[in-house]
Amino acid sequence: MNTKNKICVTHFDYNRLKLMISDYTKKNKMDPNTKDLLGEIERAQKVDSHSIPPNFVTMNSVIELKNLNELEFQEFRLVFPEDANTEQNKISVLAPIGTAILGYKIGDVIQWKLPGGENQFQITSIKYQPEANGDYHL
């Protein structure tokens, strides 16, 4: 699972994610990824959207990750499941890597179990964070 570094999520993201998880649970879709996400957001420090530092990953952020096992970089946008589209590099927060990075900051190294085994990732940059750009509605 993740390292136990301090993670931060905005109250806005927390509320939307809790609602999404509640809807999934009502439809009997509480799978391991959903449980992992719930665990992560529950342990996160909740902060106001206007106060979250720009180096933290929030929903709709565009992130560059380095896979430390393969020394390869990936760039993608962290989105809600209905907006996921791998061709457009939009990764769902319910995907293992999506859950893994939410709330972490630039420089953090994250260990996460993926379908192919456990990998280590480092967040190398956040190319866009909605809150840092005044986009508090995303």
Rank of each mutant, 00 (worst) to 15 (best):
N89G: 00
P54F: 04
K90F: 12
Q74R: 14
P53E: 13
E70W: 08
N60V: 06
F76T: 06
F56P: 00
M59S: 07
P53L: 12
L71Y: 13
T58I: 12
D83N: 11
E64Y: 00
N85Q: 02
Q74I: 11
V79Q: 10
Q74F: 15
N69D: 15
T86S: 14
P53C: 09
K90E: 08
F80E: 10
K66G: 04
L65P: 08
N89C: 09
T58Q: 12
E87I: 03
R77C: 14
F73V: 08
S51F: 02
V93G: 10
S61G: 05
E72P: 02
S61Q: 13
E87F: 04
V79S: 05
V79L: 04
K66F: 00
E64W: 01
V93A: 11
F80A: 06
F56A: 02
I63E: 11
S92P: 09
H50I: 12
A84K: 09
F80L: 13
L65V: 13
L71E: 15
K66T: 12
N67I: 11
N89T: 09
S61W: 04
F80S: 09
K66N: 13
N67F: 07
Q88Y: 01
S51A: 15
P54V: 02
F80C: 04
T86M: 13
V93E: 02
K90I: 04
T86P: 10
I91P: 02
N67S: 15
N69P: 04
K90D: 00
V93P: 08
M59F: 08
R77A: 10
E87D: 13
N55Y: 11
F80Q: 05
A84N: 04
S92M: 06
L68P: 09
N55T: 08
A84W: 05
M59G: 05
L78Q: 08
A84G: 05
F80V: 05
E70C: 06
V93I: 15
F73R: 10
I91S: 06
I63N: 06
S61T: 05
K66S: 03
T86G: 02
E82W: 04
F80I: 06
S61E: 08
N55L: 08
N89I: 01
V79D: 03
E64I: 12
D83I: 00
P54E: 12
Q88E: 13
L65W: 07
L78M: 06
M59D: 06
K90P: 10
T58N: 13
V62E: 09
P81R: 04
N60S: 10
N89D: 10
T58C: 15
Q74T: 13
L78E: 04
N67D: 15
P53T: 00
E72H: 10
T86Q: 05
N89H: 14
K66Y: 03
H50D: 08
P81W: 06
I63C: 11
N89R: 12
N67P: 12
V93M: 01
E87M: 07
P81M: 01
D83G: 00
M59H: 08
P81D: 07
L68H: 08
S51R: 11
L65R: 07
N85E: 03
P53K: 09
T58Y: 01
M59R: 07
P54N: 11
D83H: 14
H50E: 14
F76H: 11
S51T: 13
E75N: 10
A84D: 00
N67C: 15
F56L: 02
Q88V: 00
N55W: 06
K66I: 09
S61V: 12
V79W: 07
R77F: 01
E75Y: 02
I63D: 07
